[in-house]
Structure formats: C-alpha cells, structure tokens
Nucleic acid binder design. Structure first.
Lengths: 219, 219
DNA sequence: TATAGCTTTTAGATTTATCTAAAAAAAATG
DNA sequence: CATTTTTTTTAGATAAATCTAAAAGCTATA
C-alpha cells in the first residue's frame, strides 16, 4: 500500500516524464512538489526500494511499469471525482481540483467502480482530460469539429481550436466549456449555423465559425 | 486545522463520553483507538494544549466545547457520506462504514454543503443515526409508528420495535431498513393494512401489525 | 581539460504518531 | 491502613516525511 505522499510523487513523476517517456530531474520534481531537492532525493530512494520507480543516482527518475499502474489509478480516481463534483454537485470545473486532490487518495476499488457506474462511465473529466479505465487504458477518441458531428448524437467538448480571448469569452457567456455535453438538434442550411442543446438542458444557436473551432468527441 | 488522527481521537472521546457528558479513561480510549495507553496519554496532552479537550492527569478526558464542535462536524461528514454511498451508489448499509471513515476527513465546507443539498438534506444516516446540521445541532424528531403517519407524507424509518429474527427477515425481504423513505399511499380500512411507496420507487402493501412495529420520523 | 557553477546527494535535525519498558499515582483488597 | 493490583504517565526509541547545511558529482565553457 502507498501513502498519500508516495501516491502524489508517483503522479508527479508520471506527469513530468510525459506519461513515463523521459526521465525527470530531482530539481524539476522538487519544484512540482513544492519541496526541496533533498526531500525529493530521500523519497525517490524510498520509491526505488519499493520498485515503483526506475532510478540511478544523478540520472533522474521515471515510473516503473508498476509505478505507472499506481499513478494511472490515482489519476483515474482524481478525474472521476472531478466529474462527480461538476456533474452531480454543480461545482464549476475550475473549483474542483483541490477537492479531487484529496478524494483521489480514498482507498476502495469497489467505491470507484460504483462511482464510475453512477457517473455513466465518463471518458473525460470536466477539463477534457481522458479518464483511464480500471486497467489504466485511455479510450482513444477521435476529435472532430462540431460541424462534422452527426445530428442528435451526444458528444463532449474536448478542446477548442481558437484560443483567442474573444472566443473564450464568448464560450463562457453561452455556457460552453471543456467537458460540456453537446447535441446538434438542427442545421440551418442557409448559413451553416447550428441549433444545439448543451448538457441536455439549454438550447441555443451557434455560428458555423464558432462550431468549426469547437472540437468534440463522441462520448 | 486538525490531522486525521486528531479528528479520530475527538470523535472517539465524544462517543465514549456519551456526547460529552462523562469523562473517558485513558484505557477505554486506548481500546477504542486500538492503541496503547501511552500513545493515548501523548495524544491527550497534545489535544489539551490545543484546547479541544478538558484534561487533568489521572482524571480522564472529555471534549471541550470547541472539541465537541470539531467532533460533530466530522460525524456530520461521516453520516452524509454514508447516505451518499447507500442512496446514490447502491451500497448496502453495512458496507459503508470503512469508506465513510476515510471520506469524513476530506476538508471542504463547500463540498459538504453541496453534498447535503444533493442528498436532499437528510436528517438520518442509513443506520438511523441522526445527522447534525452545520452548527452541530441534531434535528429533534419524534418517532411515530408507521400506523400514525399521515398519508402522502414523506417519512424515514428510524427504528423498529420488534427485533425478532422473523420480523427483520421480513423487512429485509420487502426492502425496508433503517433509513428507508416511506410514504403512505392508501389505508385499507377493512384490515388496517397500508399501501406504501418506499424510496420513491417501489410500491407494496404491509399489514397493520408490521406497520405498528416500524417507527418513522417526518423527514 | 581544468574549473566554476549548477545539480544532486548525504548528514544531521525536526515533527508527528507510534511503540515498549519503567516509574508514579490511584484504586482495590485483605 | 498498608500493600497489592490496576491505571496512567513518563522516558526513550522508531518510522515517515520533511528541513537546512554541507559535501559530492556533473557539465559547460573558457
């Protein structure tokens, strides 16, 4: 079993190593964990003894395959709890990180599988980040512009193309953010604008230009 | 702020002292916490310095008014999470204690107030224990036999009178347990039997004898 | 390639919560 | 009421995670 602190280190190493692809320096990890290089050295030694990281002195550190598994389960829990907080408790997506940071350490595989079911097996968190399954596998989804989505198909916003302030401000105003669920109700042929429903609640019309810049995935 | 361990000690002292009414011996507390008297002595000294317990050497310990507040908030969180686990995630009421024991330490007042709302402001947990409000106050509810409940009023099972095996087995079979929400739909005059709906889902008829032994509170 | 400068590790302390063993205080009993 | 028994506290150690300060190892460059 791993302590909260050990889990947080594994998660940080996983992220900083770009999903385990490159090794992480002690200093980079110290900055991420808001601690000193000395503390990081200590902890890496400990994790290495537990065989969850690969480590050689002065050569940086990376997650081992076992460590990657642990990190992915923590990430899975974090993201599922974020979905719960936003979808069920009506938190805004930018308020949930710190709470999920605590909830991710709750130990109970049954709890997580029941939570997953309760949330209807979401594939992305409210920030649009993918949620690994119980085996640590990310669903591969292809992102398409909203203009290419088939009518009456439920999708979820994954990214936006145009990250200019004006566009983001517009999205915020109409209530679209990453993770928002969108369905196309009708296409207005004369100008290509779309009548859509967001989060199964609010209906509105958006221009073809806006729709081209909203990337969605079938959810 | 209090550590998980400190919160657990305060909760244990609150319970063993019968809601703060009598002082608790070091040994009793050691047994409850599954630790040694020496560890308890240490921790009591620490809690005393933080002014959350009243303590004189060799005289036992009790929660101070500040400590009682802390304990009641932890108890509130524990019981709300139990309601969530049973009502929303379909756990059985006897599986939830250990998970709630972890969830009760999550720090976020906003989370708890939103959870409370999401659960529809429950007054009792799935074991029938009352849930203190945000000020640590227990709702005073009067328990009445189901036979005396007004029709179409939502109530919640608090206790049962007849604790014989046969009756408990019957309740289990029809899906009634402590915490179950019950509404009376109709009273059959000729034999006093009741048509009821439980948890806003399932309808059934129970005998007058059974109803007399089910104690409910307006929820 | 020698060395200055940065990174990393080690050494030694500190804090929190625990332990065992021993001492001190209180309670029970003859 | 003295003494045995039980309870409680103190003393000293341990393990986890952290810190500061100093030593050791890399690396870039002059």
């Amino acid at each position: 079993m791993f302590s909260f602190v050990e889990e947080n280190y594994l998660k940080a190493i996983y992220h900083l190593s770009d999903h385990g692809n490159e090794s992480v320096s002690t200093n980079a990890l110290a900055e991420e964990m808001k601690t000193t290089a000395a503390s990081v050295s200590d902890m890496i030694g400990k994790l290495s003894k537990k065989r969850v990281v690969d480590y050689q002195k002065y050569r940086g550190v990376n997650v081992s395959s076992k460590g990657k598994e642990v990190a992915l389960q923590v990430i899975r829990k974090h993201r599922l709890w974020e979905v719960f907080l936003v979808d069920k408790l009506n938190f805004h997506w930018d308020e949930v990180h710190d709470i999920a940071e605590q909830l991710e350490h709750i130990k109970s595989p049954l709890l997580i599988s029941k939570l997953d079911e309760f949330l209807d097996f979401p594939k992305h968190d409210p920030h649009g980040d993918p949620i690994p399954d119980e085996n640590g596998v990310f669903a591969t989804v292809k992102k398409i512009p909203l203009t290419e989505l088939a009518p009456d198909t439920l999708s979820q916003v994954v990214t936006v193309n145009d990250s200019g302030t004006a566009f983001l401000k517009y999205l915020d105003k109409v209530g679209i953010s990453i993770g928002t669920k969108i369905q196309i109700d009708d296409i207005n042929e004369f100008d290509g604008s779309l009548d859509i429903t967001i989060n199964k609640q609010k209906s509105l019309t958006i221009s073809q230009t806006a729709a081209q810049n909203i990337l969605v995935a079938n959810s």
